[in-house]
Amino acid sequence: MQQRDKLTLAMLSAFAVAITGFERFIPTPVPWLRFGLANIIILITLILYGFKAAFTVSLIRVIGGSIMTGTFLGPAFVLSLNGSVLSVLSMGALFRIMPKIFSPIGLSLIGALFHNLGQILSAYFLFIQNFRAILVITPIILLLGTLTGAANGIVTAVALERLKKSRDNVHNT
């Protein structure tokens, strides 16, 4: 890995951690609704720098974000870690195997879905074996995840387009 790439990864990680920190202050109608805005950064990293880079940024985000919010190694951290790993794995696999089928928007939807599934499954198996309680909240979480995933995907597509343009400009001058 070149020095410049390392710097880029460090910067992307810093963005992701910062977004995770700020996201907590956005008021939401449902208490446990999170927008998952950091996934925008993870997706951009995946598409521009590949899976390894995205995985690294994602891990740094989970650990850095949890230290910032004071949940490091707590239950929320375990859920966040499992969700994020599953999410980046699913997006990475899809992007590698079938890069042309989905745009960033589809990738974002898949990422959001697997993030939520990872969280729900680990909540059930590690913490709360109450099938009924999990069953009640699952559809709401998946629905909200689909909506936020689509929104994040659109932002990612716009950001990538802009990045491409500014890169072209740099090459032309």
């Binding site: 989905f102 928007i105 998946l142």
Partner: peptide, 25 residues
């Protein structure tokens, strides 16, 4: 132009799936 058919199909699938599950539950 960026959107693919699969994006739309996936979105609609997830949306109808979760809404159906929500109504059912």
């Amino acid at each position: 132009k960026t959107l693919t058919y699969w994006d739309v199909a996936l979105f609609l699938f997830l949306l109808t799936g979760s809404v159906t599950a929500l109504i059912y539950v």
